[in-house]
Simulated scan of single mutants.
Amino acid sequence: MTVRDLPPVGELTEQQQRGWSCVWCRTALTVGEDMDLGEKRARPEGGAAYSWFPRACSDAAACAARETGKMP
């Protein structure tokens, strides 16, 4: 797997922050067809820190194609 920087948490949907959808392509994820990217901590300016749980598609090539809109 290629290491990628995570998008800023403030730009993600609730589904992406909770690990229900891919952090990059927004596809809904199912158990066994996803990759856990580990618990992350966010510290918003002027707010309380919280945990978020990014996950990604296990098929990186398909994810990248969906993200760029270049599905065959």
Score class of each variant (00 low, 15 high):
residue 1 M to Q: 11
residue 1 M to F: 13
residue 2 T to L: 09
residue 2 T to K: 14
residue 3 V to D: 09
residue 3 V to R: 10
residue 3 V to N: 11
residue 3 V to G: 00
residue 4 R to S: 11
residue 4 R to G: 00
residue 5 D to C: 02
residue 5 D to H: 13
residue 6 L to V: 00
residue 6 L to R: 01
residue 8 P to V: 14
residue 9 V to K: 04
residue 9 V to G: 00
residue 10 G to A: 13
residue 11 E to Q: 15
residue 12 L to Y: 08
residue 13 T to A: 11
residue 14 E to W: 11
residue 14 E to H: 13
residue 16 Q to L: 09
residue 17 Q to H: 01
residue 17 Q to W: 04
residue 17 Q to G: 04
residue 18 R to Y: 01
residue 18 R to T: 09
residue 19 G to M: 12
residue 19 G to S: 11
residue 19 G to A: 11
residue 19 G to N: 10
residue 20 W to K: 11
residue 20 W to L: 13
residue 20 W to S: 05
residue 20 W to C: 03
residue 21 S to L: 02
residue 21 S to V: 00
residue 22 C to E: 02
residue 23 V to T: 13
residue 24 W to P: 03
residue 24 W to K: 05
residue 24 W to G: 06
residue 24 W to V: 10
residue 24 W to M: 12
residue 25 C to Y: 07
residue 25 C to V: 07
residue 25 C to P: 10
residue 26 R to V: 04
residue 26 R to K: 14
residue 26 R to Q: 15
residue 27 T to R: 12
residue 27 T to W: 00
residue 28 A to E: 15
residue 28 A to T: 14
residue 29 L to T: 03
residue 32 G to Q: 03
residue 32 G to T: 08
residue 33 E to T: 10
residue 33 E to V: 06
residue 35 M to G: 00
residue 35 M to W: 03
residue 35 M to F: 02
residue 36 D to W: 08
residue 38 G to N: 07
residue 39 E to H: 08
residue 41 R to H: 05
residue 41 R to F: 03
residue 41 R to V: 15
residue 42 A to C: 11
residue 42 A to W: 10
residue 43 R to W: 01
residue 44 P to H: 09
residue 46 G to S: 04
residue 46 G to E: 04
residue 47 G to R: 13
residue 48 A to M: 06
residue 49 A to W: 12
residue 49 A to K: 07
residue 50 Y to M: 03
residue 51 S to F: 13
residue 51 S to C: 12
residue 53 F to W: 15
residue 53 F to E: 01
residue 53 F to T: 01
residue 54 P to R: 06
residue 55 R to D: 02
residue 56 A to R: 14
residue 56 A to Y: 02
residue 56 A to D: 03
residue 57 C to I: 06
residue 57 C to M: 15
residue 59 D to E: 06
residue 59 D to T: 01
residue 59 D to Q: 02
residue 60 A to I: 10
residue 60 A to L: 09
residue 60 A to M: 03
residue 61 A to L: 07
residue 61 A to F: 04
residue 61 A to Q: 13
residue 61 A to G: 00
residue 62 A to C: 01
residue 62 A to I: 05
residue 62 A to K: 12
residue 63 C to G: 04
residue 64 A to Q: 14
residue 65 A to G: 02
residue 66 R to D: 08
residue 68 T to K: 14
residue 69 G to N: 02
residue 71 M to W: 07
residue 72 P to H: 07
